[in-house]
Amino acid sequence: MSALDLTLQQSLLDLVRRWALLASALSLPEPRRRAADTGGLDDAELVTRARGGDRDAFDQLFRRHIDEVYRRMARLVGGDPEREDLVQEVFVHAYRGLARFRGDAAFSTWLYTIVVRVAYGHLRRRRRRPLLEGQLLEQLEPVSNAASPEQRALEREQLLRLHQMLARIKPKKRIAFVMRVVEGLSLGEIADIVGATPAAVGQRIKHAQRELEAMLLRDVRRAPLSLSAARSTR
């Protein structure tokens, strides 16, 4: 058997494994109390049903919010191999805490507070055992598909540097800064989510910005030529 046959065989096996996983996900066991139809219900109704033990309703909530939760988690913790585990953790926390959800805010907002709490705990743990550069590089998202390979490599390097710099500032500052700059939330909204005063959140953002700017400056002084510049001069 040639090497090409082996590679092809492995690819096929991998494809089969993926399809099996997808099929098992689509054929989940019957929930204990199955609702007639949960597709057209809003979040509040689904929460009420899920609170009463309707696992279909919670599954519907999961389907609705998984993308947003994943995106927010990715922004807060960066390219971390435990990102998916953290997302699962968010939904498990939400399932356990459904009884405490009063419905004062939207379910997505409440879910976001759980995302922030889970991310904060993870970032604190991560500061004690930071990721290696290789691990981080493996987990980086593809930035754009249409760009040239050099452009993609440059963006990946820039993203890697940013994640490394974000990993060096304190989790509270990092979360507040990302929520403000990337999510575009106001100080009041951030304060509500993280459970702090707007002034404290403003200070965190200010300090985070100052530290990131200083790190960027040091980075530029240390390596004035970027990867693309180096390649172009080669």
């Binding site: 998984i66 993308d67 947003e68 994943y70 995106r71 990715a74 922004r75 960066g78 998916e84 997302v87 980086l140 998202e141 593809p142 930035v143 754009s144 963006e155 820039q158 993203l159 940013l162 990302v178 990337v182």
Partner: peptide
């Protein structure tokens, strides 16, 4: 760049 990279869901 970070915003763009994390714009997509899983």
């Amino acid at each position: 760049l970070l915003a763009r990279a994390t714009a997509q869901g899983p």
